[in-house]
């Protein structure tokens, strides 16, 4: 069994259990008039993360890393260790907030939102920009402090 299958029989049993339960849930959902749309969104969620979001942020990160000023260290051109984080961290946090809250930030759902709450979504873009500004400013201040510290030879880490 192990030789043919490649793992302990319990491995097979637990996976069959998983597929049976997931299959039953899919079968129940299949009676919904929009079942095909649900299935496409399920597949889309996988693709959107693995083949769009991940490559996008990984490449952006490398791009930002490549743009940093470099200096010679043991014969190699390197950026000051950790410098990239002063751009990476605020960009990541701001991007994450946009990823999660884009419906209100970009006022995408105003009609339904208005019908429910009686309000509009005008405040959110400003709030997101404000948070983004605070994140980058905070990072800039920390960076300035670090530059000052590394220039003063009296202070060592």
């Amino acid at each position: 069994m192990r030789r043919l299958y490649g793992a302990h029989p319990l491995h097979l049993l637990s996976l069959l259990g998983c597929f049976a339960l997931a299959g039953y849930a899919a079968l129940q959902a299949s009676s919904d008039p929009k079942a095909l749309r649900i299935a496409l969104w399920f597949l889309g969620a996988l693709i959107a993360h693995d083949l769009v979001l991940f490559p996008l942020y990984a490449l952006s990160d490398r791009l930002v890393g490549g743009l940093l000023p470099r200096r010679r260290h043991h014969g190699r051109l390197v950026a000051l260790p950790g410098t990239v984080n002063f751009v990476r961290v605020p960009a990541l946090l701001s991007g994450l907030l946009l990823l999660v809250f884009f419906p209100v930030v970009l006022r995408r759902s105003e009609p339904a939102y208005g019908a429910a709450s009686g309000l509009d979504q005008s405040p959110y873009l400003g709030r997101w920009l404000l948070i983004t500004g605070v994140l980058f400013l905070g990072s800039a201040v920390l960076y300035a402090l670090r530059v000052r510290r590394t220039r003063e030879p009296a202070h060592t880490d």
Binding site: G17, F19, A22, A25, A26, R37, S109
Partner: peptide, 22 residues
């Protein structure tokens, strides 16, 4: 309130949860 998905949220979220649970 962004119903761009175009299906019933409750139905999809409930059955999706069972797939996830499994």
């Amino acid at each position: 309130y962004d119903y761009v998905f175009g299906f019933d949220f409750y139905t999809a979220h409930y059955y999706g949860a069972w797939v996830f649970l499994a």
